[in-house]
């Protein structure tokens, strides 16, 4: 059921967490945000992570985004065990294998649409010479062809999120991580954004999305529900 027509062959595993725990010290007490989570992400997956506040979904997303390290367990991404890498290497891994879409878009105000899309490319070694063409192409793909030189402040929320999605695509990542991508948008715009993510997923992109809205989660192929730092359920939606 998780297979679509485009993925006839065995899907490639792009990321994996195994027995991952995360413990914070808060006011002298250990708080277990993740109590042992294992999961595999295959190419073409569209996974929604759900859960109540405090269930550990944000912590899991931070770990998947290599912004944080697990207290124990393993996280494999692009053939690297993230926990063993240096800060610089982790930065490179983020830049190379991951694309981020945030709830509040997080575009850089002083840069234009195209320049915002190009930001991840400026941290790629070696530099791509065709960065601007690629970014323009992606801006067109997400429907912003006429606004290439606009500033984020001149765009609506939906348009800003489209820029963010284009930015998440520019480095051709293994996984796109979306943190409540529709959290700040109205229903109509949310649907547009979800349609866009759908299209991307259909072209083979792997998307991991955190959300607390069931109707948004429904659009993913797989829904993981977390509770008290553990995976409570894994459901497959009809595609």
């Amino acid at each position: 059921m998780s297979k679509t027509k485009e993925e006839v062959s065995e899907p490639v595993r792009v990321a994996m967490v195994r027995d991952v725990t995360k413990v914070y010290r808060l006011g002298g007490q250990d708080v277990k945000a993740l109590a042992g989570v294992s999961f595999e992400f295959k190419q073409g997956d569209f996974v929604a992570i759900m859960g109540t506040s405090g269930s550990g979904k944000s912590t899991l997303l931070n770990l998947l985004g290599c912004l944080d390290r697990p207290t124990s367990g393993q996280y494999l991404l692009g053939g690297h065990d993230v926990a063993t890498l240096t800060d610089e290497e982790v930065s490179r891994v983020r830049g190379r294998y991951l694309g981020f879409v945030f709830q509040s878009y997080n575009l850089i105000q002083q840069l234009s649409v195209v320049e915002n899309i190009m930001v991840p490319l400026s941290y790629q070694v070696p530099v791509r010479p065709d960065g601007r063409e690629l970014s323009t192409k992606l801006a067109t793909l997400v429907g912003l062809a006429g606004r290439l030189d606009h500033r984020p402040s001149q765009l609506s929320g939906g348009q800003q999120q489209r820029v963010a999605i284009a930015r998440a695509l520019v480095n051709n990542p293994h996984v796109i991580l979306a943190d409540e991508p529709t959290g700040n948008l109205d229903t109509a715009t949310s649907n547009e954004i979800m349609d866009l993510l759908d299209v991307l997923n259909k072209t083979g992109r792997t998307i991991v999305m955190v959300t607390h809205e069931p109707d948004i989660a429904e659009r993913a192929k797989t829904v993981i529900t977390l509770r008290d730092g553990l995976i409570q359920s894994v459901e497959q939606n009809r595609s």
Binding site: G65, D87, R92, R94, G95, R96, I108, Y123, N171
Partner: peptide
């Protein structure tokens, strides 16, 4: 601060 966080997430190293 936010911009710095975003850039770090998008692959910038501390040195950059």
């Amino acid at each position: 601060t936010r911009e710095i966080g975003v850039r770090r997430a998008l692959g910038a190293t501390k040195g950059e």
